[in-house]
Design a binder for these strands. Structure first.
Length: 566
RNA sequence: CGGGGCGUAGCGCAGCUUGGUAGCGCGUCUGGUUUGGGACCAGAAGGUCGGAGGUUCGAAUCCUCUCGCCCCGACCA
């Protein structure tokens, strides 16, 4: 490709509003442009990288025995109602009216693929089946961010497996796990598999593939000793129970005007947050329940929701709190409460703690569990955090942020049951197909690689994903010797099957260097003053190690370097 | 959805506090000189100041509403 023909509008400056390095660089280097929040165009360079990522994924999926197909983006509303996910995924569904009824833009394709399979698969002889698609998905994200990291329209690879039985699913799952490890490795990413939550769809035994990064949206707890790694949403830990340090006293009410946050109460009473029991009033499918955690801890709402078996769980509004506790928000406490109460097991050992009095501007001090008369259920309610210890080896966790790039999990019958996707087994009985689902954020990988591979001058693509393998820079196109040599090398490299971007513009050398660095092509071939001696300069974007080589060895040397890099 | 920030020329920004001729840098166009790390000189074009309403003799600037975008949180197969 000749740079003079290429549509790659690079930007010298970019708005200070754009913060994430990958986002800034992808915009500056002319890979993507935003149309709307979370909606991006892929320009030629960005599209080439997207295609390269997709091809790596495709390659490994095919190798693992999955078959590629393409599914509709328009999904009839009835199908989503049938699976029951119209309700659970309501918030992200983008609906639209079409002649013939209500449709949704596909946010994921379990329903569509399962419908396809239930209509076309009858016998155990046709199983197992692993089908995948690489295409745009659409979600009404509450908050798009970070460019391609979280978009409303994004490219995703999703594979769906259909097996006869648990053993078959196990085998497929393991196969996908191995394929994922290879895919991320080929993309040059150091990805950490972590224990994860199945989310709204449920499903046990699930792994997320995380790129550890400060820009990540998920919190990961890592055991430096045994390698246990888990998303904070589900991370397990070994509970260290404190022994009561003092005899219980009788509780008393104290006036705490305007102290409705933990911090305010602590400041006012001069106690540490871990001496407080925080009482959170939640609405579980419309019914009020109380969750008690230590003042300095965070309630894991997802875990709590699963514990309650509720479909929906949210924090109660001030009005709902008033109705459920008789007091205003910020002053709730377990003493005298009549709604169902769940207390974090860590609280068992606490004595003489502080809690709300369910009355305005009032807290109770020296509260003890004996003071709580209504039934109380002990459970694990809080998030694990750095400092908690590994469930396997009791080593303290470290906590990191991560960008989720892939997610594999066993759906089992979560979709096939409501959709009645069955087959006839060897013994003539009708059975539900057991399913798995394996996603990779293809467009997100672009951001992840950009985030992991860049320097102050721009992007640095790994050879396998680079938009071009070599940037051929002619320092001075006016110089006949340079121009002729560069044109010759361009033709020779193309003939040798090298993907080369030839900067044939009339720009000054500095501009060409800046653009080449910004775009991040791994190899740079510089035709300049040494052209008269038949010499050109070869260097790597990553390390900037100029090396003079004879013009007639260029093709061979470049091919060697490419092979070495892949 | 809660909190914070920002919308002024193609891009990046200043001007707004204290109302009075809309500015700077980059880019673009023309001519010339340059040519190994985003050149220089001369000239030129280019703006409904996000939108609507209001206050005022007069609004980019003050007030109200609204739309869009960014960041933090909530949410997230």
């Amino acid at each position: 490709m000749r740079y003079s023909q290429l549509f790659a509008p690079t930007l010298r400056e970019i708005s200070a509003e754009v913060e994430m390095p990958s986002h800034r660089l992808l915009l500056r280097a002319g890979f993507i442009r935003q149309l709307s929040a979370g909606v991006y165009s892929f320009l030629p360079l960005g599209y080439k990288v997207l295609t390269r990522v997709a091809n790596v994924v495709r390659d490994e999926m095919n190798r693992a025995g999955a078959q590629e197909l393409l599914l509709p983006a328009l999904h009839p509303q009835e199908l989503w109602a049938e699976s029951g996910r119209e309700a659970t995924m309501h918030d992200v569904l983008i609906g639209l009216k079409v002649r013939g009824g209500q449709f949704y833009l596909g946010p994921t394709h379990e329903e569509v693929i399962t419908d396809l399979v239930r209509k076309n698969v009858r016998s155990y002889r046709e199983l197992p089946l692993n089908l995948y698609q690489i295409q745009m998905k659409y979600r009404d994200e509450p908050r798009p961010r970070g460019g391609l990291v979280r978009a409303r329209e994004f490219m995703m690879k999703d594979a769906y497996s259909f097996d006869r039985d648990e053993a078959g699913l196990d085998a497929t799952y393991r196969q996908m796990y191995a394929a994922y490890v290879t895919i991320f490795q080929r993309c040059g990413l150091d990805v950490t598999p972590v224990e994860a939550s199945g989310g709204a769809i449920g499903g046990k035994e699930t792994k997320e593939f995380m790129l550890l990064s400060d820009a990540g949206e998920d919190s990961i707890l890592l055991c430096p000793e045994c390698g246990y790694a888990a998303n904070r949403e589900i991370a397990d830990f070994r509970l260290v129970v404190a022994e009561p340090a003092e005899p219980p006293r009788k509780h008393v009410a104290v006036n705490t005007p305007d102290a409705h946050t933990v911090q305010q109460v602590c400041d006012f009473l001069h106690v540490a947050p871990e001496r407080l029991v925080k009482t959170l009033i939640c609405m579980a499918d419309g019914q009020p329940v109380a969750a008690l955690v230590r003042g300095d801890r965070e309630l894991n709402e997802g875990r709590f929701r699963v514990l309650l078996g509720a479909a929906r769980l949210e924090l109660a509004t001030p009005e709902q709190i008033q109705a459920a506790t008789g007091g205003p928000i910020g002053f709730s406490g377990p003493v005298g409460l009549t709604i169902p109460m769940y207390a974090d097991e860590e609280l068992r050992g606490m004595v003489n703690f502080v809690a709300g009095a369910n009355a305005a501007d009032t807290h109770l001090v020296d509260v003890n569990w004996a003071d709580v008369t209504a039934p109380l259920t002990w459970a694990r309610l809080r998030f694990a955090e750095a400092g908690d210890v590994c469930p396997n080896c009791a080593t303290p966790f470290t906590e990191r942020r991560g960008i989720e790039l892939g997610h594999i999990f066993k759906l089992r019958y979560a979709i096939s049951e409501p959709l009645r996707a069955t087959f006839t087994d060897e013994d003539g009985s009708e059975k539900l197909i057991i399913m798995g689902c394996y996603g990779i954020g293809v467009s997100r990988i672009i951001s992840a690689v950009a985030e992991a591979c860049h320097d102050e001058n721009g992007l640095i693509w790994p050879m396998a994903l680079a938009p071009y393998q070599v940037a051929l820079l002619a320092m001075n196109m006016q110089d006949e010797t340079q121009r002729t040599l560069a044109e010759g090398l361009y033709a020779a490299l193309q003939a040798a099957g090298v993907d080369v971007l030839f900067d044939d513009r009339g720009e000054r050398a500095g501009v060409k260097f800046k653009d080449a660095d910004l775009i991040g092509i791994p190899l740079q071939l510089v035709v300049g003053k040494n052209a008269a001696d038949g010499l050109v300069e070869l260097r790597e974007r990553r390390v900037k190690n100029p090396q003079l080589i004879a013009h007639d060895t260029v093709v061979a040397t470049v091919r060697e370097r490419i092979a070495a890099a892949e």
